[in-house]
Structure formats: structure tokens, C-alpha cells
Amino acid sequence: MNIKPIEKSIAILLLFICSYSFAKEQPDYLESSLCLPKENIAFSFKTDPKEKIASICIGPQRSYLVYRYGTQNHIELNYPTDPNSSSWEKFSFNSYVRAGGELNDPKGAREISFDNSGTDYSVYQNWGSENDYEIGILIINKGKNYKISGIPKSQIGSLSRLENSRDLLETRE
């Protein structure tokens, strides 16, 4: 009985298993978001035209709040860098909703904002009448505004999931 081919097969199999486990350095994200499987997606969408992803994720048992931007292979911004129970206090939430009626068109806006080293970020969702709907990110740095448009069809969740959250900073006027 020749044991050499069996040993060779086992060695190749072990090499494959080990190389796969070492190659898998990137975390597993939920499909179409940058939230980890243990996290809940509050709001996530792809951006236009670069198709990066913006995600706001809630930790297990609402233990933290985190914003991530980039691709599943490269996170460009993870805020806060070390999410914990105090991370909720680093975000502000603002909301305005007007119901429709005979004299009013329905209209609304929600945003969650944070300051990262002097740069302000606002992830927003705005809507009005006649299919007027917009999502995206507004970045204000040194007095200049940058807008990254989101793709509404890629949206998962809603900023309404953060409404009335006692953990967020008080709503800004």
C-alpha cells in the first residue's frame, strides 16, 4: 500500500484550508451594506457614480452606532473608529415631516450628522411630492460643501429607524 499519494493529498488539502483562512482578512459584511452580520442595518445605500457604500449600523442590543463608507474591500471612513456605548452621543439626528392634504404637498427630511476632526458629515434622506426623493451624504470641510448622491433603488432601511432614539444627541434646530 502506497501512503505517499494520500499524504500528498492531505498536505494539499491542509495547505488550501490554511491559505483560505489567512487570505480572509476582510470582515464579512451583510450583502449591499458595510454592516457586520452581528449588527442591524439602520440605513445603507450605494453612491453614484462610484458605487461606494454608506452604512449606518447599530450594534447588538443597541450597544453602539457606527457609520462606514467605502467598499466591502476597503473602508475609507469608519466613525467612530472604536464604536462603544458612548458612540451614540457622537451623532445628531434631525427630522422634519409634513403630511399631505388638500392644501399641502407631503414633504420631509431626515439626517444624521457627526463631526470628524473638523469635517461635518450629514447622511440624509429628503422627499417631497411627485416622486421627489433623494438620499446622500453632505460633507462640509473648511467652508466648502461636497455632495455625494445616493442611489435610491439600492437603499436598505431608513433613517426613521433612528427617530426617537434616546441615545442620540438632542435634535438640532
Rank of each mutant, 00 (worst) to 15 (best):
E39P: 12
E39F: 12
E39K: 03
E39L: 04
N40P: 02
N40S: 15
N40I: 11
I41A: 00
A42Y: 07
A42L: 04
A42F: 07
S44F: 12
S44Y: 13
F45H: 08
F45S: 13
F45T: 11
K46N: 14
T47K: 10
T47R: 02
T47F: 13
D48L: 08
D48G: 04
D48F: 08
P49S: 13
P49C: 04
K50C: 02
E51I: 00
E51M: 09
E51Q: 15
K52I: 03
I53E: 03
I53M: 04
A54H: 10
A54L: 10
A54S: 15
S55L: 07
S55T: 12
S55I: 06
S55P: 06
I56K: 07
I56R: 05
C57P: 04
C57L: 06
I58S: 00
I58N: 01
I58T: 10
I58Q: 05
I58H: 01
G59Q: 06
G59Y: 12
G59R: 05
P60C: 05
P60W: 01
P60L: 06
Q61M: 09
Q61W: 06
R62T: 07
R62I: 00
R62K: 12
R62Y: 12
R62M: 02
R62C: 02
S63L: 02
Y64T: 01
L65K: 07
V66M: 00
Y67E: 03
Y67K: 01
Y69A: 03
Y69L: 06
G70P: 03
T71H: 04
T71V: 09
T71P: 01
T71G: 05
T71I: 01
Q72S: 08
Q72C: 04
Q72G: 05
H74L: 08
I75D: 00
I75P: 00
I75A: 04
E76I: 10
E76Q: 12
E76S: 10
E76T: 08
E76H: 02
L77V: 09
L77P: 05
L77M: 09
L77A: 06
L77S: 11
N78V: 01
Y79N: 03
Y79D: 06
Y79H: 13
P80V: 06
P80K: 09
T81A: 12
D82Y: 15
D82N: 13
D82L: 12
D82T: 15
D82A: 15
D82C: 07
P83T: 10
P83M: 04
P83R: 11
N84H: 15
N84P: 04
S85T: 13
S85W: 10
S85C: 00
S86C: 01
S87R: 15
S87N: 09
W88Q: 06
W88R: 10
W88S: 08
K90G: 03
K90E: 14
